[in-house]
Design a protein around this nucleic acid. Structure first.
Lengths: 334, 334
DNA sequence: CTGTTAGCGCCTTCAG
DNA sequence: CTGAAGGCGCTAACAG
């Protein structure tokens, strides 16, 4: 049978309550007693049972992290950040991957509720917002990652996607490019829509022609496939901006296979700054997002909210992404 | 206050035991009663409390997955496989990342024990084996992923690394290469040691010269850095075999930057077949490992073990990796 | 087929 | 500073 706090108490010749105190508020236990209990715990190899603790205390010290694509290095970095921060504060993190499937998202949310997570970190898909409402109804604090919260009653840690889109085009413009392909993902994703707004906004002022292309999923293969359309475009495209690095990497491969030279024939910019961008065959210029930091901060915020309860001030933090210049872009040679 | 099974019972005008039956063995509840309970659950928005259930039933239906590097696409695929399988059987998966740090590994193991996981999936580092012994002492079934179990009392799902190393060299030999660089990771990892045995074994019979190089961590950056040594080698190296794709990708970048042409100047082979290999600028020939399947099968096996208890037959499953030929290799042009 | 009941392991008063 | 007692939400007998 599993050994419990009671066995420890017996072994250490103290009452169970004392052992509990030792576990949770060691300062209230005399040193001599403390030593006895420590010894007993070591002898018995006792480890407290989290379920029992949760049940009794009402708090699970567990937070959920639900991401849409664990395969995307951006999200694994977010997960690392959140996981490290949770660990430091002695929280357990349950990481769930929805594979961009609303069904799976729903299911994971249900499991997380069963686990009585005390907080949720999520990058909600458009459809996923319904599930999130459910969490709200249960008063489970939720903070959005990489998507701005609409309500002031909710925290979020996101990026200024408008600015990101805008600065990529401005940079390209400063290089002399005037006809740019913009390869975007689904507009149902707020990130994509905002980046596009930034793109169009900056193009407007500068007499730049934007040719829009679209991929259904923001993965490498989709970028590879869409490249044919870019090459076939009648616009004299000299630069390509992709909504994320995965797509850009796919585009890069397709271009090289077609005998094009980067950055000579085409300047290429991605978005995210995943690790593979720096070590791509042609290191990718990109709009960097501090993924680890996003995850770490979001975890910190939700922990604060969980611990401070009602008198917690919700914040919508927005980071500015940063242009990272590498080898895939250069001034238009004319 | 949280609503419980008791509230549901009151609302549905039945006893708590009946509600419990409804939840766990619906077939033992009459249809009429079932409907009443269903309605009550919906009205009240009731979701059972997993902690209470675990505490009472003794089984947590939770399995842990501890990987050494969540940043490596190989492991995210493993995680996807394990996660999907766990979900299907209504198990909760707790994914932990040790970042190849024994301290973190230890800590996660402790948390997992607190959670009373009923099974553990792990790719143990050399040092991590101590922690695993702890699990054994507690009779928590553990199955190794990507590392063969030494004991017959334990399951594992691993790859035949000897074969993988061997077949890469054989393939290169068949292409006419006679002087090959072998870039390995730490020999303390069983995978690396076995691959090296395969490499040396197949080289021996064929009058092939292997020049050994080593990286401390199997990441892209390390491959990039070690390439200088390869280029500086006095051996007339014509092919390079790397212990994983991440390293190979780093080597590839360094080679291209040095003006080398792949596969003309050097044939290059990686290991794992992560997604980025296929879409690298020069698609990588590699030794493919079915990561998703590894994870899925391991999860299935541990679930079987958990559910069948003592009369469970442990298995050490070993997959054969497969050579995937892409553009980064060609016959030696002489 | 349904109802009753006794804990699972722990934490938290509240007296001593 | 320590000890005794009650109960968190649920399940698993067992009795009706």
């Amino acid at each position: 049978m599993a050994i419990s706090i009671r066995d420890v108490a017996a072994r250490a010749q103290v009452a169970v309550g004392t052992v509990s105190n030792f576990l949770n508020r060691p300062d209230r236990v005399a040193e001599a007693t403390r030593n006895k209990i420590e010894a007993a715990i070591a002898d018995l190899n006792f480890v407290p049972n989290a379920s029992a603790r949760h049940l009794r205390s009402g708090s699970s010290r567990t937070i959920g992290l639900l991401v849409p694509d664990i395969t995307n290095p951006f999200f694994t970095e977010v997960a690392r950040g959140a996981g490290d921060t949770a660990s430091e504060s002695d929280y357990t993190l349950i990481l769930c991957n929805s594979d961009e499937d609303p069904k799976k998202e729903e299911r994971h949310l249900k499991v997380l509720i069963e686990q009585r997570i005390c907080g949720l970190l999520i990058t909600p898909s458009f459809e996923g917002l319904a599930g999130v409402a459910e969490l709200n109804r249960r008063d489970i604090p939720t903070t959005f990652i990489d998507r701005r919260a609409d309500s002031l009653d909710q925290s979020s840690v996101s990026m200024d996607d408008f600015h990101g889109g805008k600065s990529a085009i401005e940079y390209l413009a400063s290089l002399g490019h005037k006809s740019i392909a913009w390869v975007n993902g689904p507009l149902s994703m707020a990130q994509c829509a905002d980046r596009e707004d930034g793109v169009m906004d900056s193009a407007k002022g500068q007499n730049i022609k934007i040719s829009k292309f679209q991929v259904s999923q923001m993965r490498s293969q989709n970028g590879y496939e869409v490249t044919q359309n870019i090459l076939a475009s009648i616009a004299q495209i000299t630069a390509i901006f992709c909504a994320n690095d995965l797509v850009a990497l796919g585009v890069l491969r397709a271009l090289l296979e077609s005998g094009k030279s980067i950055p000579k024939d085409y300047a290429l910019i991605g978005y995210d700054d995943i690790g593979f961008s720096a070590s791509a065959s042609i290191p990718l210029t990109t709009i960097a997002q501090p993924a680890y930091k996003l995850g770490a901060l979001a975890a910190q915020m939700i922990i604060n909210e969980v611990e401070h309860g009602k008198n917690f001030k919700h914040e919508q933090i927005v980071f500015k992404p940063e242009l990272v210049i590498r080898a895939s872009t250069q001034a238009l040679s004319k």
